[in-house]
Design a binder for these strands. Structure first.
Lengths: 188, 188
DNA sequence: CGAGAGTTTGACGGCTTTCAACGCGGGTGG
DNA sequence: CCACCCGCGTTGAAAGCCGTCAAACTCTCG
């Protein structure tokens, strides 16, 4: 199996919309964010990816979204044709896509929550599952703006809600990019 | 290839969350809506499906969402193992999933629009692509409540926006479930 | 003809957005 | 070494849009 592994530093672009798809990128370690740029210039975050996740499934045409490293990370590039020709690998790929589809649907559910607090609570939940968490401590290597673009809120609203949670001890900052979830956020 | 085709009347449930997945359902004709029921009882519409679309990709476990017929429709049930063992069919399935993923992402983009008018304009666009449209005339066999559950708005807001569009001639009702899009809505 | 689901319209209040100013920290260059 | 600057985050005040509640209307189906 032909595989090449490439490392990316924090904030580095892994691939861009419009690039020609050649091989399928899978995150070995670290975390990444997937987004598009809308016609009006707004950024829309589509998904978060953690270790083990594929960053796209395009085998032929052009890519339709961007991927950026949230933390330093390693990405393995698999040859698409080889992957598909192996029945086991194809089944594995199918499973991966089904998982992605599940996350996108949770994202949809999150976005249809009416209050900012509910949306952000769902976001914390989703992020913990995408990026990994040890019990109540989780990494959240996103800027306020990125969280806003994920949840469909403004960065001010995100900031205000987090500030309130900090006072409640619902979500306390452990260090930069690391938070501890209080009981109210450990529902799922 | 083992396939059985079943017909469903309007409003009939094609499958429910919690059902055991056995075979993969593909819509031959008609239209369907996919949704989940949230813990608080709210319905969340996840996706629209038209002719040619698979309704889920679960091969093993339990289904996580419902599918309901929007119009009378025929559904073909394919045996999952057979489908996966054929390399061509597996590739086809992968393509289908990629398309679904694309639609979910457009849905995400739609939901992050801040104004009700923008969201509904995006919805019209998406629905036209999912359900098919001839030029400016499209079918929209959804209730106001279903549109609200798709767009994350309330049915009152949907109704008000449609009423305004009717006055603007932005979107005019041709007959029950059939609308004509004005120029403002034919952007894409 | 009656019943019930779906739709329309109105008034009001609240929550988020918007606009604006300020604080903080890290990196750069003098 | 220090001053400056820029990105990021925080906080405040005001306005607007949508959600909520409520009532009346339409259409379909029995």
């Amino acid at each position: 199996m032909t595989v090449s592994v490439i490392e990316f530093g924090k904030r580095r672009t892994i691939f861009a919309a419009g690039d020609k798809a050649g091989s399928l990128p899978k995150l070995i370690s670290g975390a990444a964010i997937l987004y598009t740029i809308l016609p009006d210039g707004r950024r829309q975050v589509l998904d978060l990816a953690g270790a083990g996740d594929f960053l796209h499934f395009e085998t032929g045409g052009e890519l339709d979204h961007f991927a950026e490293a949230l933390t330093p990370c390693e990405v393995a590039f698999y040859d698409a044709e080889e992957l598909l020709s192996d029945a086991d690998m194809a089944g594995f790929l199918l499973e991966q896509m089904r998982d992605r589809l599940g996350f996108e649907r949770r994202h949809i559910t999150l976005l249809s929550c009416k209050s900012a607090t509910e949306r952000l609570a769902e976001f914390i939940d989703l992020a913990a599952d995408c990026l990994g968490a040890e019990n109540d401590v989780m990494n959240l290597p996103l800027t306020r703006q990125q969280i806003a673009d994920f949840t469909g809120l403004t960065l001010e609203t995100v900031s205000r809600t987090f500030a309130q949670w900090q006072r409640d001890e619902t979500l306390t900052k452990v260090s930069a990019g690391t938070y501890r979830r209080g009981e109210a956020l450990l529902a799922a």
